[in-house]
Design a binder for these strands. Structure first.
Lengths: 131, 131
DNA sequence: CGGAATCCATATCGATACTG
DNA sequence: CAGTATCGATATGGATTCCG
């Protein structure tokens, strides 16, 4: 039996998992899969991310050794982001998970509908509670 | 080229990924790997989770078709939780990710130390800012 | 262009208390 | 035992503004 989630490092592993679960981190990793991208190009491709969050996400990924930040000292400034080998190695299990998610979205949707109709739709859509 | 993260379902997939990244959901799935567990037993094994969060996590996982909730109408009440086939199928890619996380924790730690010493430790430990 | 800083709304979560 | 309900602290994230 694998024991890499035993108490001692459980929190640490969980911490990494959370990064993967982070909405933007995964998208950034996906987008940078095979090419380096500039800040705003990355932002445009992801879509819906604020510049603040993209900055924060990139900083964290950079600190964790997932992405590489390269500044070209031009005018105007040009900054390129690319995956490091570590980042690329993360890409694979993430892709597997993405594949699973994509394949099972219908199952999840069906399960939700079944659950909601069994327990009352109003229970989950709790914005309908009156005064 | 796989396109399961194309714009249309990108958000949906991301949503599933977030569930995986959810601190407690993964731990619950791990704990329920091969056996059914009762509420408090599950809580004890996870450790550090409030009863509120365990309830919420289990409800969500149940709604998504990941876990099965079985109530034995005894006194006192006895409720058992177990993974559904869908939940078990999620276990595999999650395990792969957990394995990656465990293997690469040292790399991440080293990357962080390098980053911090390069950019100034005070920058990341920003609790030291004076009045 | 890329990013830092500030402000503010909301979401998340833990602690606590009460219930069938 | 297995929850539900409420409350308050904190984390998260968007919008905006300013700067090199």
């Amino acid at each position: 039996m694998p024991n890499y989630y035993e108490p001692c490092q459980c929190g640490r592993v969980s911490e990494v998992l959370q990064r993967v679960g982070d909405k933007w981190s995964v998208l950034v990793i996906m987008m940078l899969g095979d090419e380096a991208l500039r800040f705003n190009e990355l932002r445009r491709r992801i879509g819906g991310i604020s510049q603040r969050m993209l900055t924060l996400t990139l900083r964290t990924l950079e600190r964790d050794g997932m992405v590489n930040r390269t500044v070209h000292p031009t005018v105007p400034p040009q900054v390129e982001y690319a995956l490091t080998p570590l980042g690329r190695s993360l890409w694979e299990p993430v892709e597997a998970l993405g594949k699973w998610a994509h394949q099972n979205l219908p199952n999840i949707d069906r399960a939700r509908q079944a659950y909601d109709s069994a327990n009352g739709v109003a229970a989950s859509a709790h914005e309908a509670e009156e005064a």
